[in-house]
């Protein structure tokens, strides 16, 4: 990677920090958001300049399609429906991260195993992204459905849910270990499916009034998956931007829960314990 690219990426990372700083003050919020958008555009354009990418036409077309969908969706949405729109955008971001990680895994498989040059940590980071990205995708779709009233906004709990949740968690750990010891795309896809189930089960028991806090938590999850992708792809912008969102998102989730006088664990697992849930 040429030095100028690394310096541009460093500048983008700094802009993301300043964007978050701006977004946390009423007078600077709009400028902060625009700064973040500008940095994101620059970071996305850079690989087209310094790399000899294949399929450039198709890639640009796919970006155009996504841009149109994003802009139209963001313009049409009513003010009261903003939280579910954020949930939807977060979900597709998590889905994208999981797909990117699956493709990375696909490229790694021939080089992994005995005598290979892929470290266990890289494989673990890939497994993490596949799983958590899928959790974020499925969880966000459920939060969207709840807020959009496509389904009941009341907590959905069925007998045995904690057991199924526990089994899915164990399956995720086993598949994660298998990805490190003997990586294959098939295991990666299984991991993604388990992630979808966990995401579904995580959000179903949450009451409607608590949903925005869960969106914030899933947002932080997606940030961490982007950070892990940054490590796997050796890309500093992805690492810094993802970590910033993961850390600030987690902290913001705690602030939001505190503002409602709840704890995050109570919001997530209150319905399972039979405690009170709003909604």
């Amino acid at each position: 990677m040429p030095t100028w690219v690394q310096l541009v990426y460093l500048a983008c990372a700094v802009c993301f920090i300043l964007a978050l700083k701006g977004l946390s003050g009423p007078k600077t919020a709009r400028a902060g958001n625009l700064l973040g958008a500008g940095a994101a555009v620059v970071a996305v354009v850079v690989p087209f300049i310094y790399l000899d990418l294949d399929h450039v036409g198709l890639i640009v077309a796919a970006i155009a399609v996504g841009t149109v969908i994003g802009v139209v969706g963001a313009q049409r949405v009513q003010m009261t429906q903003m939280p579910q729109m954020v949930a939807l955008f977060n979900g597709v971001g998590g889905g994208a991260a999981a797909l990117v990680a699956l493709l990375e895994l696909d490229e790694m498989v021939p080089h992994a195993g005995s005598g290979g040059d892929i470290s266990w940590f890289t494989l673990a980071a890939t497994a993490f992204t596949i799983f958590v990205g899928s959790v974020s995708f499925a969880g966000s779709i459920v939060t969207f459905a709840k807020l959009q009233e496509l389904m009941t906004s009341r907590p959905v709990v069925f007998p045995g849910l904690p057991v199924v949740f526990g089994l899915a968690g164990i399956a995720a750990v086993v598949l994660g270990v298998l990805t490190v010891t003997g990586p294959s795309v098939f295991i990666g896809i299984d991991l993604a499916v388990v992630g979808l189930v966990v995401g579904l089960l995580l959000v179903l028991p949450v009451g409607g009034a608590d949903v925005p806090i869960v969106i914030s938590l899933l947002n932080a999850f997606t940030g961490l998956t982007v950070a892990a992708s940054g490590y796997v792809l050796s890309n500093v912008v992805l690492l810094v931007a993802g970590t910033l969102v993961g850390a600030s998102g987690t902290y913001l989730t705690m602030l939001m829960a505190k503002a409602m006088g709840r704890s995050v664990s109570n919001i997530l697992f209150g319905a399972l314990k039979g405690g009170s849930t709003l909604g």
Binding site: A62, F89, A97, V100, P212, V226, S229, G249
Partner: peptide, 24 residues
């Protein structure tokens, strides 16, 4: 809180860069 969550959400959309690198 909500705009900050939304802005942070947009920032992790930078996974687009990762998707381009892998696809290309």
């Amino acid at each position: 809180h909500t705009p900050l969550m939304s802005g942070a959400n947009a920032i992790h959309g930078i996974i687009l860069l990762g998707a381009i690198l892998v696809t290309g």
